[in-house]
Design a protein around this nucleic acid. Structure first.
Lengths: 143, 143
DNA sequence: ATACATGCAAAAATTTTGCGACTCT
DNA sequence: AGAGTCGCAAAATTTTTGCATGTAT
Protein backbone atom coordinates (compact mmCIF):
# COMPACT_ATOMS: atom_id res chain seq x y z
CA UNK A 1 0.00 0.00 0.00
CA UNK A 2 1.19 3.45 -0.92
CA UNK A 3 0.06 4.68 2.48
CA UNK A 4 2.60 2.50 4.27
CA UNK A 5 5.28 3.38 1.76
CA UNK A 6 4.75 7.01 2.62
CA UNK A 7 5.22 6.37 6.31
CA UNK A 8 8.30 4.23 5.92
CA UNK A 9 9.54 6.88 3.54
CA UNK A 10 9.31 9.34 6.43
CA UNK A 11 6.55 11.52 4.99
CA UNK A 12 4.30 13.29 7.42
CA UNK A 13 0.94 11.63 6.93
CA UNK A 14 -2.03 13.91 6.91
CA UNK A 15 -5.59 12.82 6.24
CA UNK A 16 -5.36 14.39 2.81
CA UNK A 17 -2.27 12.44 1.89
CA UNK A 18 -3.90 9.31 3.16
CA UNK A 19 -6.93 9.94 0.98
CA UNK A 20 -4.89 10.69 -2.11
CA UNK A 21 -2.70 7.65 -1.51
CA UNK A 22 -5.84 5.53 -1.18
CA UNK A 23 -7.23 6.87 -4.44
CA UNK A 24 -4.02 5.89 -6.17
CA UNK A 25 -3.97 2.48 -4.55
CA UNK A 26 -7.55 1.79 -5.51
CA UNK A 27 -7.18 2.98 -9.10
CA UNK A 28 -7.06 0.14 -11.58
CA UNK A 29 -6.89 2.64 -14.42
CA UNK A 30 -4.33 5.38 -14.84
CA UNK A 31 -5.95 8.57 -13.54
CA UNK A 32 -4.80 12.08 -14.33
CA UNK A 33 -4.63 14.85 -11.74
CA UNK A 34 -8.22 15.87 -12.22
CA UNK A 35 -9.49 12.30 -11.88
CA UNK A 36 -7.49 11.85 -8.69
CA UNK A 37 -8.89 15.11 -7.39
CA UNK A 38 -12.47 14.09 -8.14
CA UNK A 39 -12.03 10.73 -6.45
CA UNK A 40 -10.41 12.34 -3.44
CA UNK A 41 -13.24 14.82 -3.09
CA UNK A 42 -15.70 11.96 -2.96
CA UNK A 43 -13.95 10.67 0.11
CA UNK A 44 -13.59 14.09 1.72
CA UNK A 45 -15.11 17.06 -0.02
CA UNK A 46 -12.68 19.46 1.59
CA UNK A 47 -9.62 18.20 -0.25
CA UNK A 48 -8.36 20.96 -2.51
CA UNK A 49 -6.88 20.71 -5.96
CA UNK A 50 -3.78 22.53 -4.71
CA UNK A 51 -3.13 19.77 -2.22
CA UNK A 52 -3.58 17.15 -4.90
CA UNK A 53 -0.95 18.83 -7.04
CA UNK A 54 1.40 19.28 -4.11
CA UNK A 55 0.93 15.73 -2.89
CA UNK A 56 1.41 14.18 -6.30
CA UNK A 57 4.57 16.20 -6.64
CA UNK A 58 5.82 14.91 -3.31
CA UNK A 59 4.92 11.31 -4.04
CA UNK A 60 6.60 11.53 -7.38
CA UNK A 61 9.75 13.10 -6.01
CA UNK A 62 9.84 10.39 -3.36
CA UNK A 63 9.71 7.83 -6.14
CA UNK A 64 6.43 6.37 -4.92
CA UNK A 65 4.38 7.03 -8.01
CA UNK A 66 5.14 7.03 -11.69
CA UNK A 67 3.91 9.49 -14.32
CA UNK A 68 2.79 8.07 -17.65
CA UNK A 69 2.63 10.08 -20.84
CA UNK A 70 0.07 8.87 -23.31
CA UNK A 71 -0.48 10.68 -26.58
CA UNK A 72 -3.59 12.87 -26.62
CA UNK A 73 -4.06 12.61 -22.90
CA UNK A 74 -3.08 14.51 -19.78
CA UNK A 75 -0.26 13.15 -17.70
CA UNK A 76 -1.45 10.14 -15.77
CA UNK A 77 -0.15 8.48 -12.64
CA UNK A 78 0.16 5.04 -11.15
CA UNK A 79 1.65 3.64 -7.98
CA UNK A 80 5.19 2.57 -8.63
CA UNK A 81 5.59 -1.20 -8.71
CA UNK A 82 7.75 -3.48 -10.78
CA UNK A 83 8.61 -1.66 -13.94
CA UNK A 84 6.31 -2.48 -16.79
CA UNK A 85 5.12 -0.99 -20.02
CA UNK A 86 1.85 0.15 -21.52
CA UNK A 87 -0.05 -0.91 -24.59
CA UNK A 88 -2.73 1.55 -25.60
CA UNK A 89 -5.65 0.26 -27.62
CA UNK A 90 -6.10 3.11 -30.07
CA UNK A 91 -9.67 2.04 -30.77
CA UNK A 92 -10.88 2.22 -27.21
CA UNK A 93 -8.25 4.18 -25.34
CA UNK A 94 -7.88 1.30 -22.93
CA UNK A 95 -4.43 0.84 -21.47
CA UNK A 96 -3.03 -2.64 -20.99
CA UNK A 97 0.05 -3.26 -18.91
CA UNK A 98 2.70 -5.79 -19.76
CA UNK A 99 6.15 -6.84 -18.68
CA UNK A 100 9.01 -8.05 -20.78
CA UNK A 101 12.39 -8.89 -19.33
CA UNK A 102 13.73 -9.29 -22.85
CA UNK A 103 12.90 -5.72 -23.73
CA UNK A 104 14.41 -4.55 -20.49
CA UNK A 105 17.63 -6.42 -21.16
CA UNK A 106 17.77 -5.22 -24.70
CA UNK A 107 17.30 -1.62 -23.65
CA UNK A 108 20.06 -1.84 -21.07
CA UNK A 109 22.33 -3.50 -23.57
CA UNK A 110 21.80 -0.85 -26.21
CA UNK A 111 22.21 1.98 -23.72
CA UNK A 112 25.43 0.44 -22.52
CA UNK A 113 26.73 0.39 -26.07
CA UNK A 114 26.06 4.09 -26.10
CA UNK A 115 27.93 4.44 -22.84
CA UNK A 116 24.99 4.87 -20.52
CA UNK A 117 23.69 3.18 -17.40
CA UNK A 118 19.92 3.03 -17.50
CA UNK A 119 18.14 4.44 -14.48
CA UNK A 120 14.68 3.93 -15.94
CA UNK A 121 12.82 3.79 -19.20
CA UNK A 122 9.29 4.06 -20.47
CA UNK A 123 7.70 2.31 -23.39
CA UNK A 124 4.26 3.15 -24.69
CA UNK A 125 2.93 0.99 -27.48
CA UNK A 126 -0.04 2.03 -29.58
CA UNK A 127 -1.99 -0.55 -31.47
CA UNK A 128 -5.31 -2.08 -32.35
CA UNK A 129 -6.80 -5.49 -31.88
CA UNK A 130 -5.78 -7.96 -34.56
CA UNK A 131 -8.71 -8.35 -36.91
CA UNK A 132 -10.63 -5.75 -35.00
CA UNK A 133 -12.96 -3.58 -37.03
CA UNK A 134 -12.16 0.03 -37.65
CA UNK A 135 -13.86 2.49 -35.35
CA UNK A 136 -12.35 5.92 -35.99
CA UNK A 137 -14.76 7.57 -33.58
CA UNK A 138 -12.93 6.21 -30.58
CA UNK A 139 -9.52 6.28 -32.10
CA UNK A 140 -7.06 8.15 -29.98
CA UNK A 141 -4.46 8.65 -32.59
CA UNK A 142 -3.70 7.42 -36.06
CA UNK A 143 -0.12 7.32 -37.16
CA UNK B 1 12.08 18.95 -45.94
CA UNK B 2 8.91 19.34 -43.97
CA UNK B 3 7.92 22.21 -46.22
CA UNK B 4 7.67 19.94 -49.24
CA UNK B 5 5.91 17.29 -47.24
CA UNK B 6 3.25 19.84 -46.40
CA UNK B 7 2.68 20.69 -50.03
CA UNK B 8 2.53 17.13 -51.21
CA UNK B 9 0.24 16.50 -48.29
CA UNK B 10 -2.12 19.08 -49.75
CA UNK B 11 -1.78 21.68 -47.00
CA UNK B 12 -2.29 25.28 -47.93
CA UNK B 13 1.13 26.83 -47.49
CA UNK B 14 1.19 30.20 -45.87
CA UNK B 15 4.33 32.12 -44.96
CA UNK B 16 3.69 31.29 -41.32
CA UNK B 17 3.51 27.58 -41.98
CA UNK B 18 6.62 27.82 -44.06
CA UNK B 19 8.45 29.54 -41.22
CA UNK B 20 7.29 27.05 -38.61
CA UNK B 21 8.17 24.15 -40.87
CA UNK B 22 11.61 25.64 -41.37
CA UNK B 23 12.12 26.00 -37.63
CA UNK B 24 11.30 22.35 -37.18
CA UNK B 25 13.53 21.31 -40.06
CA UNK B 26 16.44 23.32 -38.72
CA UNK B 27 16.07 22.12 -35.16
CA UNK B 28 18.70 19.61 -34.16
CA UNK B 29 17.29 19.51 -30.66
CA UNK B 30 13.71 18.75 -29.68
CA UNK B 31 11.99 22.09 -29.16
CA UNK B 32 8.77 22.60 -27.25
CA UNK B 33 6.00 24.91 -28.43
CA UNK B 34 7.48 27.95 -26.81
CA UNK B 35 10.91 27.32 -28.31
CA UNK B 36 9.38 26.89 -31.75
CA UNK B 37 7.45 30.10 -31.25
CA UNK B 38 10.55 32.04 -30.24
CA UNK B 39 12.50 30.75 -33.22
CA UNK B 40 9.64 31.55 -35.57
CA UNK B 41 9.38 35.09 -34.24
CA UNK B 42 13.05 35.62 -35.01
CA UNK B 43 12.32 34.92 -38.65
CA UNK B 44 9.14 36.97 -38.72
CA UNK B 45 8.14 38.89 -35.65
CA UNK B 46 4.47 38.87 -36.59
CA UNK B 47 3.99 35.13 -36.13
CA UNK B 48 1.59 34.59 -33.27
CA UNK B 49 1.62 31.90 -30.63
CA UNK B 50 -1.91 30.94 -31.64
CA UNK B 51 -0.72 30.13 -35.13
CA UNK B 52 2.14 28.08 -33.76
CA UNK B 53 -0.28 25.99 -31.74
CA UNK B 54 -2.68 25.63 -34.63
CA UNK B 55 0.07 24.76 -37.07
CA UNK B 56 1.69 22.22 -34.81
CA UNK B 57 -1.70 20.64 -34.34
CA UNK B 58 -2.18 20.42 -38.08
CA UNK B 59 1.29 19.06 -38.74
CA UNK B 60 0.81 16.49 -36.05
CA UNK B 61 -2.60 15.41 -37.27
CA UNK B 62 -1.15 15.11 -40.76
CA UNK B 63 1.49 12.79 -39.34
CA UNK B 64 4.33 15.10 -40.33
CA UNK B 65 5.73 15.71 -36.89
CA UNK B 66 6.04 13.61 -33.80
CA UNK B 67 5.47 14.67 -30.20
CA UNK B 68 7.94 13.45 -27.59
CA UNK B 69 7.18 13.24 -23.90
CA UNK B 70 10.18 13.58 -21.66
CA UNK B 71 9.83 13.55 -17.89
CA UNK B 72 10.03 16.99 -16.31
CA UNK B 73 9.72 18.74 -19.60
CA UNK B 74 7.04 20.23 -21.80
CA UNK B 75 5.91 18.28 -24.79
CA UNK B 76 8.53 18.48 -27.50
CA UNK B 77 8.35 17.97 -31.24
CA UNK B 78 10.48 16.66 -34.05
CA UNK B 79 9.97 16.15 -37.74
CA UNK B 80 8.76 12.64 -38.37
CA UNK B 81 11.43 10.45 -39.93
CA UNK B 82 12.27 6.82 -39.51
CA UNK B 83 11.03 5.75 -36.13
CA UNK B 84 13.66 5.90 -33.47
CA UNK B 85 13.96 6.21 -29.72
CA UNK B 86 15.38 8.67 -27.23
CA UNK B 87 17.99 8.31 -24.56
CA UNK B 88 17.96 11.17 -22.07
CA UNK B 89 21.15 11.92 -20.19
CA UNK B 90 19.75 12.67 -16.74
CA UNK B 91 22.88 14.57 -15.80
CA UNK B 92 22.76 17.05 -18.62
CA UNK B 93 19.25 16.78 -20.03
CA UNK B 94 20.74 16.09 -23.43
CA UNK B 95 18.67 13.82 -25.65
CA UNK B 96 20.38 11.23 -27.82
CA UNK B 97 18.53 9.43 -30.57
CA UNK B 98 19.03 5.80 -31.42
CA UNK B 99 17.52 3.11 -33.54
CA UNK B 100 17.15 -0.56 -32.80
CA UNK B 101 15.43 -2.97 -35.16
CA UNK B 102 15.65 -5.65 -32.49
CA UNK B 103 13.61 -3.59 -30.05
CA UNK B 104 11.11 -2.85 -32.77
CA UNK B 105 10.72 -6.52 -33.63
CA UNK B 106 10.47 -7.50 -30.02
CA UNK B 107 7.78 -4.92 -29.35
CA UNK B 108 5.73 -6.07 -32.32
CA UNK B 109 6.14 -9.66 -31.28
CA UNK B 110 4.99 -9.02 -27.72
CA UNK B 111 2.06 -6.92 -28.83
CA UNK B 112 1.03 -9.64 -31.22
CA UNK B 113 1.02 -12.13 -28.37
CA UNK B 114 -1.40 -9.80 -26.66
CA UNK B 115 -3.52 -9.71 -29.79
CA UNK B 116 -2.53 -6.28 -31.07
CA UNK B 117 -1.12 -4.85 -34.24
CA UNK B 118 1.34 -2.09 -33.42
CA UNK B 119 0.70 1.21 -35.15
CA UNK B 120 3.49 3.01 -33.32
CA UNK B 121 5.44 3.02 -30.10
CA UNK B 122 7.63 5.32 -28.13
CA UNK B 123 10.56 4.48 -25.94
CA UNK B 124 12.29 6.98 -23.69
CA UNK B 125 15.35 5.78 -21.84
CA UNK B 126 16.81 7.71 -18.93
CA UNK B 127 20.37 7.13 -17.90
CA UNK B 128 23.74 8.56 -17.05
CA UNK B 129 27.15 8.18 -18.56
CA UNK B 130 28.96 5.07 -17.43
CA UNK B 131 31.55 6.14 -14.89
CA UNK B 132 30.32 9.70 -15.07
CA UNK B 133 30.51 11.67 -11.87
CA UNK B 134 27.35 12.57 -10.03
CA UNK B 135 26.05 16.05 -10.63
CA UNK B 136 22.62 16.31 -9.01
CA UNK B 137 22.31 19.96 -9.94
CA UNK B 138 21.63 19.12 -13.55
CA UNK B 139 19.81 15.92 -12.89
CA UNK B 140 16.42 15.90 -14.51
CA UNK B 141 15.00 13.12 -12.50
CA UNK B 142 16.18 10.53 -10.05
CA UNK B 143 14.30 7.30 -9.88
C1' DA C 1 -13.98 33.92 -55.67
C1' DT C 2 -13.88 31.54 -51.69
C1' DA C 3 -12.52 28.47 -48.41
C1' DC C 4 -9.37 28.55 -45.16
C1' DA C 5 -5.48 30.86 -42.24
C1' DT C 6 -3.99 34.62 -39.35
C1' DG C 7 -3.47 37.96 -35.45
C1' DC C 8 -5.40 39.62 -31.58
C1' DA C 9 -7.31 39.45 -27.38
C1' DA C 10 -10.34 37.07 -24.46
C1' DA C 11 -11.31 32.69 -22.42
C1' DA C 12 -10.42 28.17 -20.86
C1' DA C 13 -7.58 24.85 -18.83
C1' DT C 14 -3.75 23.54 -16.09
C1' DT C 15 -0.37 24.28 -12.52
C1' DT C 16 1.92 27.01 -8.98
C1' DT C 17 2.16 30.03 -4.99
C1' DG C 18 1.58 33.40 -0.89
C1' DC C 19 -0.52 33.38 3.35
C1' DG C 20 -2.88 32.80 7.61
C1' DA C 21 -4.85 28.84 10.00
C1' DC C 22 -4.21 24.23 11.30
C1' DT C 23 -2.16 19.58 12.37
C1' DC C 24 1.07 15.86 12.56
C1' DT C 25 5.06 14.15 15.17
C1' DA D 1 6.36 23.51 20.33
C1' DG D 2 7.72 23.65 15.74
C1' DA D 3 8.11 22.23 11.25
C1' DG D 4 5.53 21.31 7.80
C1' DT D 5 0.73 21.05 5.51
C1' DC D 6 -3.80 22.75 4.16
C1' DG D 7 -7.46 25.49 1.90
C1' DC D 8 -8.32 29.45 -0.41
C1' DA D 9 -7.90 32.61 -3.79
C1' DA D 10 -4.81 34.96 -6.70
C1' DA D 11 -1.31 34.39 -10.10
C1' DA D 12 1.31 32.16 -13.54
C1' DT D 13 1.41 29.00 -17.43
C1' DT D 14 -0.18 26.70 -21.18
C1' DT D 15 -3.62 25.97 -24.72
C1' DT D 16 -7.86 27.04 -27.21
C1' DT D 17 -11.22 29.99 -29.50
C1' DG D 18 -14.30 33.83 -31.66
C1' DC D 19 -14.03 37.14 -34.92
C1' DA D 20 -12.74 40.52 -38.30
C1' DT D 21 -9.26 40.56 -41.77
C1' DG D 22 -6.05 38.68 -44.98
C1' DT D 23 -4.31 35.19 -48.33
C1' DA D 24 -3.31 30.90 -51.10
C1' DT D 25 -5.20 28.32 -54.66
Amino acid sequence: MLYEECISGGLKMTVQRRIIADCLDEADDHPDVDAIYRRAVEKDSSVSIATVYRTIGIFEKAGLIQPIDIVDSNKRYEVKRERHDHLVDVETGQIHEFKSPSIENLVREIALEMGFDVSDFQLQVYGSKVGGKECPCYRIKVY
